[in-house]
Design a protein around this nucleic acid. Sequence first.
DNA 1: ATGGTGGTCCTACCA
Length: 267
Amino acid sequence: MRVMTWNINSVRLRAPLLAELVKHSAPDVVCLQETKTPDEHFPREVLEKLGYPHIAFVGMKGYNGVAILSKFPLEDIRTFPRCLKEDCRHIAAKVMQDDKTAFDIHNLYVPAGGDKPDPVINDKFQHKLDFVDELSEFFPKHHANDEPMIVVGDLNIAPLENDVWSHKQMLKVVSHTPVEVEKLNDFYRSMGWIDAVRHFVPDEEKLYSWWSYRARDWEASDRGRRLDHIWVTDPLKEKLKSQQVLKTVRGWERPSDHAPVIIDIDM
DNA sequence: ATGGTGGTCCTACCA
């Protein structure tokens, strides 16, 4: 079972890139963030033809939006308004294999949080902190950690020192500030999640999934951050087989600023 | 300290 997560930054603009990507990597389940498309304009038929007959999505005009594409049937599709907003940042479904639930998958797009890492003067940062708090409460309340579950998405936080190009220079930059890293760690501990990518890549090793559009040469400067994550609950831990961060996709023509992240699970 | 690029959709807003 191959699960991929990718912040696609407009599903309509980059459907051709997605086609190329799935031809190369053949994921069974694809979770997309920042689809930036209202439901009535979601390119369902185009994505079905890529080999994904089962699709769940929720979107809005211009911003946000998440989708799950699957080769396996999806059941119990849920969307969650969070922080008293209808902003299309959380969708979940059960992935079915042989008429049984293989796992419950949650696809998240955590608010980026604006520029200033101060919740008093920057309500986008407050929203980000509240959003992660809400997740820490939600999961233990509605799920048990002996359920096979996967959380994926653009969490917009790089928690480890080697999830950013310079830990010291990033401490006051939104995505790596201690307050939001601590919030993410609370969420991480809330279900005893396992970071499926760091399961294979030692914490001492630099690993990024995002490079800014603003760099003159993103690859040469390599000032990346690991914002995109795949976490699993304990029942899936021993089934984890491998991980990939597809950095080359960041170098394709008209790319997303995020690279796709893949996990293989022995199901 | 600043601005750098890109997507959506027309004027800023968000990342």
